[in-house]
Nucleic acid binder design. Structure first.
Lengths: 214, 214
DNA sequence: TCAGTCGGTATACAAATGTATACACCCACA
DNA sequence: TGTGGGTGTATACATTTGTATACCGACTGA
């Protein structure tokens, strides 16, 4: 299970910190890193062959944190009726408490290193599958949606929330609004999907009695 | 109107190229840049005070390209009935033809420089407003949605498409799928919004006759 | 014709970087 | 008891970086 400790942990955490406040993982300097970790530059080589290897370890570290978060998330959701609202709030709060990891993930997802990108994408896909499973198992959504549709929407939602989390983190005044907006996003996706197979005319017929009242 | 030419243009294009293939704008080196542009390092100072200023110019350059694209886009959309499909295809194609600018935009939107981020965000917000206006003016969406709702959905859609464009660019085999998925995304948002003010029970009643058939 | 500005170059230098080599301490284990 | 590996340090060095100063040709306007 090789848990990271000591100087190695210091370096990984330093990387996370520096990548957040200055740039991305792949453009960190070895000496810069050692300085932040309070170690001698050469100590780096005791733990990593090069900077790429460090990057992968950092992602592994992030993945570990995220997994713990998701597990906790499931437990909270389990004990709640108003799943959508509470889950969205919880997810954002989770990102807020893992600001550095979230920032790095967002930046590396479309960053310059193919290795890191692929690793992150798989992580996100796994989360989407899990979310879809969860939704289906617990019957949280309107009836009548195929598994494939739920998966697709989960996939979109995960990505949407991840990016939105950056604004959530950095604009405290808008947190409430972002959270509500995200709930609307999710609801619209699922509800809209119920109407996927309707033509525009059929849609008109169905909704002719409705008009937005606010 | 100060159009960029000569050595300055070479530097801006070099920045775009290097930022795409290696990292982000803010981590470029002055000498690296000059080398790529085939110029003496000190020539940089003839055009820019520092690297931040270069970054802003690059964003301006990108914004210019984007604006031209949007104008062209409007003309295409004008002459089409099936607006959604053609527009989505056109937008992705536009990103494809401006790969470097798109990549840099995605990376800087949540990158380390607040200045660049703010500039980009304003650019995106302007695009969203324009999209919303366009949709409302031309009556492209189901009746019954407030202007505010259309704006919100435009906002979400612009961002969604921008990020999705990265996959579109880099995974040719998936382009068709991404395009269709995006169309579903947009339709679901607008159609789902029609049902915003329904409770879950009302929704059940309305859709009880419907079942996904594919 | 000539002075001035613009875009570009050459040279120089202090600072920072990645890395190699050699040394020091601690702990396990034979 | 000693010996070997894991972790950290000190010193050194070639390379690269940002930037300062000075020089050069072309174009422009008086």
């Amino acid at each position: 299970m090789s848990v990271i400790t000591g100087g190695k942990l210091k370096l990984v955490q330093a990387a996370l910190k520096l990548a957040t406040e200055r740039s991305n993982l792949t453009s960190l300097g070895l000496r810069e890193l050692a300085r932040e970790a309070g170690l001698n530059p050469n100590t780096f080589y005791r733990h990593f062959k090069n900077l790429d290897e460090l990057g992968l370890q950092v992602l592994g570290y992030i993945a570990g944190e995220m997994k713990a978060g998701v597990r906790e998330l499931r437990m909270v959701a389990e004990s709640s009726e108003q799943a959508a609202t509470n889950t969205v709030a919880f997810v954002y709060n989770y990102f807020l408490e893992n600001k550095a990891a979230t920032t790095v993930a967002v930046r590396e997802l479309y960053g310059p290193s193919p290795i890191l990108r692929r690793a992150l994408e798989q992580q996100l896909n796994a989360s989407a599958r899990e979310m879809a499973e969860d939704i289906l198992d617990r019957g949280l959504i309107p009836r009548g949606l195929s598994e494939q549709t739920v998966q697709e929407i989960s996939h979109m939602t995960i990505r949407y929330i991840l990016f939105r989390a950056m604004d959530y983190i950095e604009k405290p005044a808008q947190r409430e609004a972002i959270q509500q907006e995200t709930e609307r996003f999710i609801n619209r996706q699922f509800r809209g999907a119920l109407l996927d197979h309707l033509s525009n005319d059929e849609l008109d017929a169905l909704t002719s009695g409705l008009a937005e009242t606010d």
